[in-house]
Write a protein that binds this DNA or RNA. Structure first.
Length: 201
DNA sequence: ACTACGATTACCT
DNA sequence: GGTAATCGTAGTG
């Protein structure tokens, strides 16, 4: 299948909405990064909402610091943070200063797959971008991208996906956190086989 | 300066 | 299922 490259970039009005809504609506959209003259990326199949300061699981809960400051910037800003010697990426949501964002946890590889395989040092499609740190590595994203804009940038961005993408979206508790563990703020395409962990009710 | 820990991953049984 | 690797943050002194 030779898939048309999406060209309708999501703008700030998309991100400047309640975080749970943005997280749900991002399922099925295309995350793309331009490397040289090639675009690499795929469909978003898993996200998590991290709310404002009152969400104890959110990085914003401890207030603004040197390393999380981009999470408090305007909607559509890119927040990349390091963890366990790897990186994870978020899209900032809501009003400026709120400190809310959506973590992109998994994509289905679609465009520039060979480049993604090279970046990961693997060929198995199922192990390319099933997890927040894996997808950063496969797309060549690191801390230098922190604070960039998904809206204004000519490289990294999230794009409207082709019409016929009917996704079955379900919610689950968030992964890997120790606070507010019961809230169902993780959203998945429940039929995808590229999730960081399989969907269960 | 020192320590504990994490929105993870890979590899093991 | 379990756990070790790995390193930037943040909290403490």
């Amino acid at each position: 299948m030779n898939l048309h490259l999406p060209n309708q970039r999501l703008m700030s009005a998309f991100y400047d909405r309640p975080t749970e809504i943005v997280a749900r609506d991002l399922i099925g959209k295309a995350l793309l990064n331009k490397i040289g003259r090639d675009w690499i990326g795929g469909w978003i199949v898993e996200t998590e909402a991290y709310l404002d300061k009152r969400d104890p699981a959110s990085h914003s809960a401890r207030g603004i610091t040197a390393s999380n400051q981009s999470m408090f910037m305007r909607a559509g800003t890119f927040y990349v943070y390091p963890i366990h010697a790897k990186h994870c990426l978020n899209a900032v949501t809501g009003i400026e200063g709120a400190g809310s964002a959506v973590l992109i946890r998994a994509i289905e590889p679609v465009w520039g797959v060979s480049q993604m395989q090279q970046n990961r040092g693997l060929t198995d499609l199922k192990r390319l971008s099933r997890g927040p740190a894996m997808l950063c590595q496969s797309l060549g994203i690191d801390r230098r991208d922190d604070g960039r804009s998904l809206v204004d940038d000519h490289h990294l961005g999230i794009f409207e996906s082709p019409e016929a993408m009917r996704r079955r979206i379900r919610s689950t508790p968030r992964v890997g956190i120790s606070k507010a563990v019961k809230r169902r703020l993780r959203f998945v395409d429940s039929e995808s086989s590229f999730l960081s962990r399989p969907f269960r009710t």
